[in-house]
Every structure is written in C-alpha cells, then in structure tokens.
Design a protein around this nucleic acid. Structure first.
Lengths: 256, 256
DNA sequence: TAATAAATGTTGCTTTATGTTGTTTTTTGA
DNA sequence: TCAAAAAACAACATAAAGCAACATTTATTA
C-alpha cells in the first residue's frame, strides 16, 4: 500500500484544527460522516508524514503551538495562575507598552493578553514573544542571545543592554517568594538583575504571584519593594505581608 | 484567444475559496453543475499554473506567499512541507550546529527536529526558537530585536551582527521561488541579506522548497546558487531547473 | 453559414478509498 | 487483578475516483 495525499486527510486536518488541535476518532468520523476505520487509516498516513500524533482514541496536530496549553496544564497551580493572569490583563489597556519578564505566571499573562490590541511588548521570554508576536498589531521586542534550556529565557549583558533601550508604561514581573522582611525574591541572580532593570524603566510595576509564594524562601531580592505598585495574587497574604505591602505602598489586588 | 475557457477555472477557484481553500471534485462539480471530468481537467490546468494542488478526491488552493499571513502559509501544502522537513531532519545528525532561517517550511523543519539531541541552533525566527529551545539539551541562540508582525522574524543590523558570531555545520534556508536563470529567490531584501550571511558562515547549505516554488517569480536573489549544496523538494523540478542545479553542483534530494 | 477549434460529456477500464466483519489489543471500572 | 467495554487492527468486498479515448456540444472565424 502506497499512501497518497488525499482530500480526506485535508478534511481531517481542518477538523482537528477546528477542534483546537486534537479530537477523538469517533468525533472526527461523525463530523466527516465516514467510518472510524477511514479516519484511522488516514490518520495513520498523516502520522507517517509527521503531521499529527496518534493517541489512543484520538489524534493531535503536531507543532503549531497548540500543544502549549498541554504543557501548561502540567505546570503547578494553573487555575490560580490563569485567574491572576486575567486580572493583570484587565489592568493593561490596549495600546500600552510593557515589559514582561520570564516565568510560568507571565506565560499565562501573555495568553490572557491575546485579545489586546496594539501592545508594545518587551520581553526576554521566548514563550511570551511567540504568543504575542504576529497578533493584533502588537509590536514585540525580543531580547536576543542564548536561550536558557529550562525556560527559554535570554539573559546576560546583551539582554540587559537591549532592555535598556526602552521605557514603558508597565513592568509585569513574577516572584518566587514574598516575605515581609525582604520583599520580593527570586531564585536566580540573572533574573533578579533583569527584573530590577525593567522596574527602573517603567511607570507602573506589577508583580504577579500565586498564594504559594507567600513566605516561601528564595535567595535573591528583586530590589526595593517600595517600587512595586501592585501585587496581584489569588488569595490574601498573611497579615505580616499585608502590613509590609502597606508600608511599601504596594496595593494588593485580588484575582477572583 | 480564449476568453470563455478561463471562466470555468475562475469558477473553480472561487468555489474553492468559498469552501475554505479546499473541496472535493464531486462537490465542485455539483456546485458548478458540470461533470466531474470537466472539473478534473480544469484543475489539471490550474495545477500546472501552480494555482491549486491536486489531491485524490479533491483539490486545494495554493495561496500567493506574498499576500497570505504566516499562519495561513503554514497550513498551505502541509504534507509536502512535512515530507521535506523530515528529509532535511534526516540529513542533520545529532549534535550538529545549524542556522535555521525564517519561513513556513523551516517552521516545519523545527518540528521535524524535535527528537534530535544536542543541537546548536541559531535562528531569527521566533517559531523555530520556541520549538527547539527547552528540548533535548539543545542550545538555541535567538537573534533579538523587533519581531516582524507577519512572521515573527528578527531582521536588520542587530540580527546580522548576532548571526555573525557563529560558524555552523549547516545552513537551512527556504526560498520563495526557484528558476534556472536566477537561482534561488525571496520576496524580501532583508531576508535575502540574512540568507546570504548564514550561507557564508556554514559548511553545508541546504535549501528546502516545495514544488510550487519552481519557476515562481520572486524579486530578490539569495545569492550565488553555486554555494547551495542541497535542494530538498517534494517533486522533481522541470528539466531546465534540474540542469541548472547540475551546473551549480547543487544536489537535488527528493523527499518522499 | 460552414469550417474549425475548444471545451465538455460519455463510456469502459484501472487505481484508490471506504465500509464491513471478525479478531486482537488496550483502557476502564469494580 | 479481572472482566467488560472501547478502540485498534487485518482482510476482504464494494464503492468511488481517476484516466484515456472518443462523441458531442459550444464558441470562433472566415
């Protein structure tokens, strides 16, 4: 049997696309009004050319970034991060300029910004850039360099010099830990340096963090917590952090 | 000479367009109230022009690369691009260093390289970088700058200077048009400049292009075709291009 | 209007795709 | 862990699509 390009395969691809990247054999068969065997046979062909990936009971498009949501589902505490992301997106008007740093929460924020228009986004995160470039007349500036293999971020002097070119309305950051004594903390010095820089180059600073970050320990401080204008989180922090935020004039915004 | 005959082909094109880019012969025949043979014959003509692609049971519009968006271009002729992508991936061993430029075909090549290990990838395409960073111990170097909104590519002096830092085993490029007289062509001068640069900085040069590119017109030449070592495509080019490739010592590799 | 060229329709035949049936494998739920 | 259910697979018969040669219609030109 020599497989050939076939219109049925085209139909299956579009069906998968409409279904958001993956669907069940049964569903596809019903949609196209053919037998499930036909769907399986054609999916088999699409598999051999690498267009789709076969799952038991269904299939999924390979590539085209639809799987990002799948990767994200694996991350921790996604519901909270999604709520936070939408809250942050509400705070950012169309046409704004903003820094978006790297982090699992900021990746969700990029998703939440997908319907915004005319944004000017400066980022060192490949995921953020990928999600917002080629959309809605946004202008996206990506810091170049070697991308860290664990998170796809660009760091170092080149990234700093790149970011130094900009002055934006918002800086949107994540934090790995928050406590009353030290403020906002990260695990990585490079990240912290970048965070400090973009805070100094923006009018409004927003830190997004889910409740698990409260009183979690991280080694590097992001810098003077007085600079942070908003802390967006999914639950009220413990009393000591709430009081500290008051002293920093940091407004706590609850995502619901 | 023949004012009416074209009309049928025009009707078929509009029918395809209304159907979302692809349709079955049977459906088109019913829509236009003609025999299926007539539809096949006209589609055959449209195929030789390069306007549509024939599938068993149907046909699909081949859009003009200049006018369609990057996302749309990704979905054009995906089987051919995927086949080509896998062929190119076969040519690249684990641990190689390579330039990957921007283009819908190279986006598929990035997908096809998803199981490769320890690659060093230099690119100016956000899609390529996103797909290969954070995978299999790859090192990915992304050229920074403003990302073009229609394809997510970084261009200009900064991208050029960035690429200039590297010397790689492979350069993998796309072409928008190929003809015997001018060699490999692109629509955009910036792209062509970048292509020339990375060709000059790599040991083996591979151009990936599907059959629709043969004898398609594009304004800017990529440079001296003698430099190109491999042309990977999904069908044999017309005789004149085949001969030209011989004179350029460019090996034609067929993806099947 | 007749002659010619082009396009379309028709028919018989070959190739390819699909549906069906029965069997094996994988998942699910207790 | 097992049994029932769902899904996948294999093999065959049938249906659909493609192809080529010829007949017919439609358009073009002298």
């Amino acid at each position: 049997m020599k497989p050939q390009p076939n219109h049925r395969q085209q139909e299956i691809l579009t069906a998968l696309h409409k279904a958001g990247g993956s669907a069940r054999i049964h569903t596809i068969a019903q949609t196209l009004d053919v037998s499930e065997e036909t769907v399986r046979r054609n999916i088999k062909h699409l598999t051999t050319i690498g267009a789709v990936e076969k799952l038991h009971g269904g299939a999924r498009i390979v590539g085209n970034a639809e799987e990002t949501s799948f990767q994200q589902r694996l991350s921790e505490n996604p519901e909270a991060k999604i709520r936070i992301a939408h809250k942050v997106a509400e705070m950012i008007p169309n046409g704004s300029s903003l820094f978006l740093d790297i982090g699992s929460t900021t990746a969700y924020i990029a998703d939440a910004l997908r319907d915004h228009q005319n944004l000017l986004v400066v980022t060192n995160s490949i995921a953020v850039a990928y999600k917002l470039a080629t959309r809605n007349n946004n202008r996206v500036f990506m810091a170049g360099g070697e991308l860290r293999s664990h998170d796809g971020g660009a760091f170092g002097m080149d990234a700093m010099n790149f970011a130094d070119n900009f002055q934006t309305d918002f800086a949107v950051l994540s934090a790995a830990g928050i406590n009353a004594a030290n403020g906002f903390m990260l695990f990585d010095l490079e990240e912290a340096k970048f965070s400090r820089l973009i805070m100094s180059k923006s009018a409004t600073r927003i830190i997004a963090a889910d409740a698990r970050k409260f009183n979690r320990v991280a080694p590097v401080t992001i810098g003077n917590p007085d600079l942070v204008d908003y802390l967006v989180c999914d639950a009220l922090p413990p009393k000591d952090i709430t009081q500290a935020c008051e002293s920093w004039t940091t407004e706590i915004t609850l995502a619901n």
